[in-house]
């Protein structure tokens, strides 16, 4: 039981990779990349978890009264979410342009270069 969260993270990452490799649509591929990235959220939060602990926010609990989970990985996850969202936006913008210039969003049809 103690490795289940880590295995879930590995599973989410691999299933995202499978989706990326077999994707027939660039928008679907961007979604798969987001799935891969969510594996890192699961992994980071699993690494920082502590049994019976609460959120590391002391506005409503006295410091030291309860164990808290690791705030460093939570901050890293926040960074991860923000960077993931911006990367998704940038890739979708590229997809919009590809769709306009080439008339397709199927990566297999985008093989040949066009001047």
């Amino acid at each position: 039981m103690h490795v289940l969260p880590y295995l879930v993270a590995a599973y989410v990452f691999l299933i995202g990779c499978y989706g990326l490799a077999t994707s027939r649509n660039l928008i679907h591929a961007v979604g798969c990349l987001a799935v891969c990235q969510s594996a890192t959220y699961v992994l980071l939060l699993a690494v920082g978890y502590r049994d019976g602990a609460t959120a590391p926010v002391f506005s409503d609990i006295a410091p030291g009264s309860r164990p808290v989970v690791d705030p460093v990985v939570q901050a890293l996850t926040l960074t991860d979410v923000v960077v993931g969202a911006t990367v998704t936006a940038l890739l979708l913008a590229l997809t919009v342009q590809i769709s306009k210039r080439h008339g397709t969003v199927d990566p297999d049809e985008l093989r040949e270069l066009r001047g």
Binding site: M1, V3, L7, V47, V69, D70, V72
Partner: peptide, 20 residues
């Protein structure tokens, strides 16, 4: 790699304790 990671929910979080 997952099998060799520190167990989920363990009490040892040196960085977390220092950050708090």
């Amino acid at each position: 790699a997952c099998l060799r990671l520190p167990a989920f929910g363990g009490a040892r979080h040196p960085y977390g304790d220092r950050a708090v």
